[in-house]
Nucleic acid binder design. Structure first.
Lengths: 205, 205
DNA sequence: GTCTATATTTGGATAGAC
DNA sequence: GTCTATCCAAATATAGAC
């Protein structure tokens, strides 16, 4: 059949082990912070010696890179599968709820994807690709809702970033800031339509 | 005279050296990030050996702590000396402009004060004191402008945090987000007065 | 593939002479 | 106060046997 090839059991096993290593890496990062990841501890956690990890990843940075790729892929799916609405305001609210939920659901993932706290780490083009695709998708979703003004988009990202950040930093596990999402989006929406009206006025004059 | 005592030239010299060390530490952090601070390099930078630093600070954490104290003190002065206005909206705008300017002026200081990126670092009560005083002052300034609703304050901090963070992360040295401050405050102000009106309606009914 | 042993670097911190 | 010498711990990464 087209695109199908013989199953390579060796390769499958190898991928499974890589995933097992990455899962353990996420666990470690969630416990002690991203920077706390050490190859010794990681190896012990998956039941092998530290040098054996090099059979699966070229370096510690390669592990961070793979984690970044997983996170970006997860975000892409999050953005693809979220509920949609025909109403622009509701669409804005659903989109932002989705974003903030994604961020607060796993603070370490948020940190890795959006805050770049690892000195010297830059994601490779391969790992970055789904991230770009995700951003393009969100941008398209917003455009569908009639949101194309760059300043409004910048303000939107600032609000989203700020809500997620405050929630994670100052009320982890709670909802002190996440509950403000709908209200904040209503505020932004009102503000945009008000400015759009004024702008039309100026144009017609 | 009251409160005046004999000058202690030894003590003065010591304080001067401590400040010199802290200045060098800020420089290092600005160049390679907060986490890059190493006692060896720091010592070389001020022209002494690494162990000599222990004559001035008990540990590396004590240096971070002193830096935190300096930053908090600077914020307090920033909040005290900012321009004021009798008009509530203008007051909101001036306050937020002040905050975002403080944050973007020195990203490393922002990181140390508001993001706590050093694993295991917690500021001591002495270093934290000016920070508390600064927060209380800002809170009072906002109350003077008629802003006391907790949800509105939370939304305000999220917006401030978000604007500063986006500016620092995505357009360092530019003004892509800082220029949105006045507009964002107008938006928040409109939203608050609208909600306040609605709330009054409900109460009177 | 996985291991043991080891190289190498780098860091914070201490001891003790001067 | 400042230095040299040193300790100790932890980290990434490599060599080479099995």
């Amino acid at each position: 059949m087209l695109g199908e090839t013989t199953r390579d059991r060796r390769q499958e096993r190898r991928e499974a082990t890589k995933n097992e290593i990455l899962e353990a890496a996420w666990d470690m990062a969630r416990e002690g912070g991203l920077a706390s990841l050490s190859l010794r501890d990681l190896a012990r956690r998956v039941g092998m010696s530290a040098p054996s990890l090099y059979g699966y990843f070229d370096s510690k940075m390669a592990i961070y890179d793979a984690m970044f790729g997983q996170g970006a892929q997860q975000y892409l799916e999050y953005a693809r599968n979220r509920p949609r609405s025909g109403d622009p305001l509701e669409e804005l609210q659903l989109g932002m709820r989705n974003f903030v939920a994604f961020c607060t659901e796993d603070p370490v993932r948020y940190q890795l994807l959006f805050q770049r706290p690892i000195p010297g780490f830059e994601p490779s083009p391969e790992s970055y690709a789904p991230s770009i695709e995700g951003l393009a998708l969100v941008r398209q979703q917003l455009a569908d809702a009639g949101l194309t003004d760059q300043k409004a988009l910048d303000l939107l990202t600032a609000i989203g970033n700020g809500l997620a950040d405050q929630q994670i930093s100052n009320d982890p596990g709670g909802d002190r800031w996440t509950r403000l999402v709908d209200d904040a989006m209503e505020m932004l929406f009102d503000h945009m339509t008000k400015k759009a009206t004024k702008a039309r006025g100026r144009t017609k004059k």
